[in-house]
Design a protein around this nucleic acid. Structure first.
Lengths: 342, 342
DNA sequence: TTGTAGGCGTTATCAT
DNA sequence: ATGATAACGCCTACAA
């Protein structure tokens, strides 16, 4: 490989001068700069980050640890967000996936240490409580899309499920719906509780009785292999004479099930029934016809702002144990409309 | 940071000996190994890859370039496949995403050169023909999920759309269906042609007349912002007296549209109508009820075997311009059944 | 404005 | 089986 010395020889200057030019330092004679740059071009010299990093012991690499398995497709947007931030700020990104296996997680921490990484973004595919690496590792870390367990101190950046669900509830009630069905998310997810709590609170605050809100459990069991009651529950809920005029689902996958159930019962959406979901999984939310009203998960922003947060942490600008909450915007589409006067 | 010299001092040996132990070289006295390892443990020494790489100029890092935008969620599985292979083979993975922007692509090549990466996996989110980086870069590269344009020589690994579609066509015909509808993929996708060509050939080979196969275009326009005719076309196709008993769609997104259209027409699936898709986007294929028969895209394997192929290339074990095709397995689920005797 | 000396942490080479 | 010395490519510190 062509090194700084080769360039120096061709340009007829010292290697240090080449270094200066390569780093765009001031105090180099313009003519010299020109000369050196020409040599660089001629030889196709590309600086060696490895050497640069070693000498200055200043890394510009972030590590990403994910726990993806084949579920939760759009959570990959978190990584895109991180990469965009990294690209804009001249950082490089080293990535590893644990498949959720603790052994691979600790291997990864080790590898990242070996590479003298600046900091780590620990990305989970769904919103939950975690406790990364029991064995002490001292690389600065930010949790993305998860909340740290009490034991350790980590900064985190998370979606504001509670607020998003509040907005959705208010919207549905403002549409005039007074009989509302709600099919709950798997309780194993942190979002499940936040979303139903928020929804219940709004219902109460708006003066509706709890009887106007019918809540059913849609899924349960281990993530990725849950039992799914949604179609059945929705069918039952929508078959009664006193059926709800709006059916809210814990997420878009469940909304799809409810949607199918409604169509099979001959209900028109949104004229006869308003359906809404959560997550904005576009394969579903944009795939349905009419498209699905839903609360979007800010995956991309979680990544982008997570990287930003990590950067602030590295510069000592952020206190320990700081948690950021990112808004989950309500996306209104065709599956919801005002309650028809019945 | 604690270095090899610190360990040497504590263990009372030379730094080279520590190096030997760290690299598990033979010809070190067992007692010495023990002594050194204890010092390593005591000091928490972690080797510095940066320095190691510099000295031996042997990199163990693969670069991944993706062109993801927010569409095509499951293509992230390609990356998972790569990461799994990398993990199993002690490679590290540097990642960058171009968002499809050429400027970012060339920045990325540059960055990878700076990091003295071993090789690059160029991953596209959908199956298409590409021509990476017009400006010559000499890092060994394997294209994953795309086919090189004629101009340059690249190895590639791609899904066998043709074969997958052939299997699906045979299956549908074996079920006894004689009137078949087919809604085509956006012609901008490489898979579109492969899939319809294969389908047509099987129909011909099985002695059906072309009149028994009704082909409609389902989507067109720029990827990510296409015009969608599927629901409309499906409704039309299924409304006629002489309607098809099986409706095959270019992918699962389109199958969802067809599914909804069928339900709205009061058709039962699969009793009245067999529906099949392509891609196995599980949010849809497992979300529908009954679940969708489809041809799976081997995303994970593309990544895993792509990494494997790159590794072989790096070891000089693979000739130039070699293309691998990976099978797209037919996944039979509830949305398909034998044609009812009408 | 430019150059020299030295060292970052590791491994290659050659001795012992 | 172990060690001494040099070198990888770059940058820091200092000098000219």
């Amino acid at each position: 490989m062509v090194s700084i010395k080769d360039v120096a020889k061709v340009a007829g200057v010292s290697d240090k001068t080449v270094s200066r030019v390569a780093n765009k330092e001031s105090n180099v004679h313009p003519e010299t700069v020109e000369k050196v740059n020409e040599a660089i071009r001629k030889l196709g010299y590309v600086p060696n980050m490895t050497a640069r990093m070693m000498r200055s012991s200043r890394s510009t690499t972030f590590g990403i640890i994910t726990d993806y398995v084949s579920t939760t497709p759009y959570s990959g947007d978190i990584v895109r967000g991180i990469q965009d931030w990294a690209n804009e700020n001249k950082k490089t990104v080293l990535m590893a996936n644990t498949n959720g296996e603790p052994e691979r997680e600790s291997e990864t921490w080790r590898t990242f240490q070996e590479h003298r990484i600046q900091g780590v973004l620990f990305v989970t595919m769904y919103h939950r409580i975690i406790d990364p690496m029991p064995n002490a590792v001292q690389i600065p870390t930010v949790l993305v899309n998860s909340h740290p367990s009490k034991k350790r101190k980590y900064r985190s950046i998370e979606p504001d499920d509670y607020r998003g669900s509040t907005d959705l509830a208010k919207y549905v009630i403002q549409l005039g719906h007074r009989k509302i069905g709600y099919i709950r998310l798997n309780p194993a997810l942190l979002g499940a509780e936040l979303r139903i709590d928020a929804f219940r609170k709004v219902v109460r605050d708006c003066g509706l009785s709890q009887a106007d809100l019918t809540v059913k459990l849609g899924m349960e069991g281990p993530i990725g292999n849950e039992t799914n009651w949604v179609h059945q529950e929705a069918t039952e809920m929508l078959s009664g004479a006193n059926r709800p005029t709006a059916l809210v689902c814990g997420n878009d996958e469940m909304a799809l099930q409810a949607y199918l159930a409604a169509l099979r019962l001959g209900l028109r959406i949104p004229e006869d029934l308003t359906i809404a979901g959560f997550d904005d999984f576009r394969l579903i939310s944009l795939g349905l016809k009419p498209q699905l009203t839903t609360v979007a998960l800010p995956y991309y922003d979680l990544g982008y702002k997570g990287a930003e947060l990590l950067n602030r942490v590295l510069r000592g600008e952020t206190p320990e144990e700081k948690h950021e909450n990112l808004p989950c915007p309500l996306v209104i589409r065709g599956s919801s409309s005002t309650a028809s006067p019945s």
